[in-house]
Design a protein around this nucleic acid. Structure first.
Length: 717
DNA sequence: ATAGGGTTAG
């Protein structure tokens, strides 16, 4: 019917602009729609137009129909216009809907509901609230249908304030018994991080529906309490409550958060049995679960089975690759997306930047930066902040700074990213200066800023400064968390104040976590403090029994005081628990390509040349007076396996390869999966001077810039 | 005669 309209109507209607009454005459003179309508017997315009409207999927027919309403005078028909507003909002044309709404004289509650719903659905929350307030001003009383939309809009606002006010209206209007309103309140408080209040509301709901249950489950899942979410889910099952696929999405997300692949898999089975496996959103949740738990092959097969392109699914897959050591795959997936013309969003972009940060290739990082500079995300603060982190992690603090400087309205996250970046590169002073500049700029630091500044002090050995910053946290209303304590313990411990560090741990108002004891153990290793180290290790083994790193640290501590039976004891413990130490490797980027080396690796096509270069280096090092510390290293499990010589650690192979494949003076950029070993560190310092090269090494923890025989870490890492 | 609530990627 719509398509049989005379062409000229559609040429009158400008795209995205509603027709106005001023155009009415012109339309009237130029069409014969009324005649067309009159051919129906007992023509009922309301059912006719609602039926037309429900079939509309594009703006053009919507405008045509609008024109017909204007000509026929039906734009004063509240019933039809309500339907019209709903359909245009569903198509994302809520501004158009608003203009049509404004043309309607004295709108009554149905029309108000439609426009508020439109804004709320399109996530235009403040507009929705504005309309709600205007509705009050116009003296129109909201009904039970108004409130849920308003509550949804309140949940999207940064503060719970408006939501509370609406909660007040609810009582006054007497809608507090309405289960739709109650459900809306549960998700409102959950979204505003007031899960405790959400729970109180939920507990008072008499006739809970599946939506009530889903709201509270997802509320706990969103508020970092997946265990509680799962507890309620079990309760729901116990009561044989009905559940649907939306509930399962939240439950899967809770399993993902607690890394429970077992339960997740079993739920996957249920989903198949229920015939819900083709539900797109469930597929996204399942892909996320498998990807997060490292089952990338399963995740990829779920991903591949979906034919309809879906940004969220792509993001879930890219995220899975990026965070599970498959950065290259993540980046590749993004290029696939571009070549297939699949719409990406700012989350995709941020994930790909994250992947670049993990990959560590400066060339790739530059490429991504260029892509963004030529895209709509050029001024996106989140994207630019991710770029700062990326450049810092890819070894170029200068390029990170350049991105930082081009951000106009820097928020606390952008400042923090740069502060963390300086810390990563051991530039503690720059980090502190930037922190002060941030305060000057009137930006309030948050807990992450302090982690950054404390890490920076740590990496630069700025004990007093770190101590000062730690104690200034409360001044900004920030309660120190585990990581802050871990930084402080690390800071004191590395500087040799072991007893003080231990004292801090004992006085902590929160239960010390793995990171805190880990910091203490690390310090004990440096200062060969066996008893305290053993104590810290004990705590660590009970808190985190399958982390290889702790065993290695303890073994190193024993080795450093030549307590060989202790070393053997740790080895037995590891064997009993089925643990083996991580193999070391180094990556070097040559001509934009990353190449990997393992210890004593002879698999490289240019292996012969590499080992020849290594020999030359070794001779030059000896001539320059370099004496490796053999004994401790031979038993040092944290680094790479012992060999008869020390010069074939993966890091050295990478350096040798770098030297023979780049022109003199080129900076070498190396990424290691473990921390720098003492011997390689001092050797690399000398090499940088001997061959007159800058060598940038990213270890598991931080960056080392070797230049002229010195390292930016000041031998403090 | 019209219409309402919950979810996933970060």
């Amino acid at each position: 019917m719509i398509s049989s309209l005379p062409k000229r109507i559609s040429t009158i209607a400008p795209l995205f602009q509603p027709l106005h009454l001023t155009q009415f005459k012109y339309l009237h003179l130029n069409n014969n729609l009324l005649q067309e309508n009159n051919t129906y017997n007992n023509f009922n315009p309301e059912s006719y137009y609602t039926s037309c409207l429900s079939q509309i999927t594009h703006i053009r027919p919507l405008q045509q129909l609008h024109a017909r309403l204007l000509v026929s005078g039906l734009h004063y028909n509240g019933f039809i216009i309500t339907k019209f507003l709903n359909v245009s909002s569903n198509l994302g044309l809520v501004r158009y809907a608003h203009e049509v709404f404004d043309e309607f004289p004295d709108p009554y509650v149905f029309l108000w509901n439609a426009i508020i719903r439109g804004y709320s659905m399109q996530n235009m929350f403040s507009e929705a609230i504005t309309m709600y307030l205007r509705m009050h001003e116009c003296g129109v009383r909201p009904d039970g249908y108004t409130i849920p939309h308003v509550l949804k809009a309140c949940g999207g606002l940064p503060s719970v304030r408006v939501g509370r006010a609406v909660h007040g209206h609810i009582f006054r209007l007497g809608f507090d018994w309405d289960v739709f309103v109650q459900n809306g309140l549960v998700s409102l408080y959950a979204k505003c991080s007031r899960i405790d209040v959400a729970r109180v509301v939920f507990d008072r709901v008499d006739d809970r529906t599946v939506v009530s249950w889903t709201s509270i489950i997802s509320g706990y899942a969103q508020n970092g309490q997946p265990w509680e979410a799962l507890k309620i889910y079990r309760e729901m099952r116990r009561l044989s409550e009905e559940l649907d696929w939306v509930t399962l999405v939240s439950v899967l997300s809770a399993y993902t958060d607690v890394n429970d692949l077992q339960q997740g898999k079993s739920l996957h089975g249920c989903i198949i049995k229920l015939g819900l496996e083709f539900e797109a959103d469930l597929r996204i949740a399942l892909t996320t679960l498998y990807a997060k738990c490292g089952e990338l092959v399963v995740a990829k097969s779920l991903f591949d089975q979906m034919e309809v392109p879906n940004v969220m699914l792509w993001n879930a897959m890219i995220s899975g690759f990026a965070k599970n050591g498959c950065a290259e795959e993540a980046i590749q997936l993004f290029w696939d997306m571009l070549s297939k013309n699949i719409r990406s969003d700012s989350i995709t972009i941020r994930l790909v930047i994250l992947a670049c940060a993990h990959a560590g290739s400066l060339e790739q990082a530059r490429c991504m930066d260029e892509f963004i500079t030529n895209s709509d995300y050029k001024h996106d603060i989140y994207v630019n902040t991710a770029l700062i982190d990326m450049y810092a992690k890819c070894g170029s603090i200068e390029l990170a700074r350049r991105v930082f400087d081009r951000i106009l309205n820097k928020d606390v996250v952008a400042w923090s990213a740069m502060i963390v970046g300086y810390g990563l590169h051991g530039q503690g002073r720059e980090s502190i200066d930037l922190f002060q500049a941030m305060i000057q700029a009137g930006v309030t630091p948050n807990d992450v800023t302090f982690i950054g500044i404390l890490t920076a002090c740590n990496h630069s050995g700025l004990v007093e400064e770190g101590w000062y910053f730690f104690h200034s946290m409360r001044q900004y209303g920030i309660e120190p968390r585990h990581q802050h304590y871990a930084c402080l313990v690390d800071l004191l411990g590395r500087a040799g104040f072991l007893e003080q560090a231990y004292h801090i741990i004992r006085k902590m108002p929160i239960e010390p976590h793995v990171s805190v004891w880990g910091a203490l153990l690390g310090a004990c290793k440096i200062y060969r403090h066996v008893t305290l180290g053993e104590y810290a290790a004990e705590r660590l083994f009970s808190l985190d029994p399958y982390n290889t790193g702790h065993y290695v640290q303890l073994s190193n501590l024993y080795a450093s005081v030549r307590f060989w039976s202790g070393v053997a004891k740790v080895r037995v413990m590891m064997k009993e628990r089925g643990l083996s130490k991580d193999l070391g490797y180094s990556l070097i980027e040559i001509n934009g390509k990353l190449e990997a080396f393992r210890m004593a690796d002879k698999s490289h096509p240019r292996s012969k040349e590499i080992f020849k270069e290594l020999e030359i280096l070794e001779r030059r090092l000896k001539a320059a007076g370099y004496i490796p510390d053999t004994e401790s290293v031979l038993h040092d499990l944290s680094h790479e396996d012992k060999e008869e010589t020390l010069c074939n650690h993966s890091e050295r192979l990478a350096i040798a390869y770098g030297l023979i494949s780049t022109s003199p003076g080129t900076t070498l950029r190396i990424t290691k999966n473990l921390r720098a070993c003492v011997n390689c560190h001092s050797a690399t310092k000398m090499i940088s001077k001997l061959v007159n090269r800058e060598i940038v090494v990213r270890d598991a923890n931080r960056f080392h810039h070797f230049k002229d025989g010195l390292c930016s870490c000041g031998d403090y890492w």
